[in-house]
């Protein structure tokens, strides 16, 4: 392979790219490194990854980074100030520093995104693989349930759930998770249908492996990458739905610095004090774009056919 003519001072690169790995760990690391090499060749994906990492760091060090309190403003002196050296993104109608609120709002965005991914992706994966592998009645039942969820527009269904559960960021997360798993189930099922005919599945079947073992250990690992890609690409939509719920007053409640709610707040002053709505809008735009770029890169890196 090309490892021979690669100028590498340390032997680690050859060790990772070795054709003859000596241990389980070396094989796994080598595979991860190969994926990373494909991913890192994609400049835009790297930009997306950088923004997502920046979002993580901002959320982690929000208390240190925010110059002012996100909740308390001075109504007499700092109300609706335009961007300046003291307030980079200006202040809102309560006199609060918008930059500080956006920095603290990143935590809420991250909370929503991570929780939805943790809740929705495994549900979709399990439903899809079980339906695809078992076929027959189980398949029909699970897929009709999926169809029912798919038949509703996501935001409307989320609205109904939040109306039933009561407004608040946790309920918004549950509502979004409940409405976002069906596409993952569809993808996982479609992949499972092609995989289950393969001889390597027949081989473990005739050895006497249980259906659960086959689904969990042999089929799911092959579906995970496409679901991860889809989840990453959906992140933008999830952020927008959370912001939309916040905008409608059904997501995060004031004074929580949720980006969507901040835009809703700035709507009153959008003509004269544009910065109140523009700054959180730009933040949503940037993070959504970053997740889309990241998802595109992951699709190339995780494609099983493109393994180098």
């Amino acid at each position: 392979m090309s490892a021979v003519n690669a100028p590498s001072p340390g032997g680690w690169r050859e060790w990772l790219m070795s054709d003859r790995p000596q241990s389980r760990r070396q094989a796994a690391l080598g595979r991860a490194y190969g994926g990373w090499r494909t991913f890192s060749r994609n400049r835009l994906a790297m930009l997306g990854l950088a923004i997502v990492i920046a979002l993580l760091l901002v959320a982690l060090f929000a208390n240190q980074l925010a110059p002012y309190s996100p909740y308390i403003g001075d109504l007499r002196t700092t109300r609706l100030l335009p961007p300046s050296a003291a307030h980079w993104f200006g202040t809102d109608d309560q006199g609060r520093d918008i930059l500080s609120r956006i920095i603290h709002g990143s935590r809420i965005t991250l909370f929503v995104v991570v929780l939805v991914a943790i809740l929705a992706a495994p549900i979709g994966l399990v439903v899809g693989t079980v339906a695809g592998y078992s076929g027959g009645l189980i398949d029909a039942a699970l897929m009709r349930i999926t169809d029912i969820f798919l038949a509703f527009p996501r935001l409307i269904l989320a609205l109904a759930f939040v109306a039933a559960l009561g407004p608040g960021i946790e309920n918004a997360v549950i509502a979004i998770a409940i409405t976002s798993w069906p596409p993952y189930a569809r993808i996982a099922r479609a992949e499972t249908l092609t995989i289950r005919q393969a001889d390597y599945i027949a081989a473990v079947q005739l050895m006497g492996a249980s259906p659960w073992r086959i689904v969990l250990r042999h089929i799911m690992p092959l579906c995970v990458s496409s679901v991860i890609v889809r989840v990453t690409l959906d992140m933008a939509g999830i952020i927008l739905t959370a912001a939309g719920l916040g905008f409608l007053g059904l997501g995060a409640q004031p004074p929580t610095p949720e980006w969507g709610a901040m835009i809703a707040n700035g709507r009153l002053y959008v003509l004269d004090q544009w910065w109140v709505a523009a700054a959180p809008g730009a933040a949503i735009f940037l993070v959504s774009l970053a997740f889309n770029l990241l998802g595109d890169g992951l699709r190339d890196a995780l494609d099983p056919k493109g393994v180098k």
Binding site: A198, D199, Y200, V204, M207, G208, A209, R217, L222
Partner: peptide, 21 residues
């Protein structure tokens, strides 16, 4: 080309029957 799991090392492929039985 179709009878070995594409994402499993030879080691995993051979360990699976032993684990099942």
């Amino acid at each position: 080309y179709g009878s070995l799991h594409p994402r499993q090392t030879i080691d995993r492929t051979l360990a699976e029957p032993l684990a099942i039985h």
